[in-house]
Simulated scan of single mutants.
Amino acid sequence: MRARLRQIHIDGHTYTWRAALHRVQIDGFHHRAVYVRAWGGGGKNGQKLEADLLSAPGPYIVDSGYPTPVDVRAVIICGLKSGWQPEQRGGTFVLYDREHGASFAASGFQLTNPVHPGESADPTIHEAQQRG
């Protein structure tokens, strides 16, 4: 099934976005995880914004909820404040917990580092894997 592209308007600019739900397990608890991608007025030719979100705070059972426009607005605003340039051609700007988590504000979600299949979303495990 193809992901549905949606639009959101922020400060006179139109952004296109999509999100995919998945789940991750941390310390035996399932968390709802959302894989969010957004593009500016340049469409898919412009610089892409990527963010991975986990349900927060604490453990939740994965539900079938979809991120609200308020959640996506928080991702886009954090990206813009952090240096995302949607009008730039090509490339990807990724929001990471360590670098951008303090400036991310969305109730019900926390920013996490990208989670790939087979990896843990637990930041301490993720950092230990990166250090070797």
Rank of each mutant, 00 (worst) to 15 (best):
T14S: 08
W17C: 03
H22Y: 10
Y60I: 11
R2F: 14
G42E: 14
H22G: 08
G40V: 04
V62Y: 06
F29S: 10
I8D: 05
F29G: 08
D27C: 08
K44P: 01
V72G: 04
V36Y: 08
P59M: 14
G43A: 04
Q25N: 15
K48E: 03
K44N: 10
V36P: 05
G28N: 11
R2S: 12
I61V: 09
I10E: 15
H30K: 02
Y35T: 10
V24T: 11
H30L: 05
Y15V: 07
H13E: 09
V34H: 15
G58C: 03
H9M: 08
W39H: 14
G40R: 00
H30I: 02
A3P: 07
I10D: 12
G12E: 11
V72Q: 00
L21T: 15
G42N: 12
G12R: 10
G43P: 02
G28S: 13
Q25Y: 11
A3M: 07
R32M: 10
S64P: 01
Q25D: 15
G41C: 01
G46E: 08
D63L: 04
H22T: 09
A20D: 09
R23E: 15
P57L: 10
G41K: 02
N45L: 07
G42D: 12
L49M: 01
L21W: 11
W17K: 05
R23Q: 10
R18M: 09
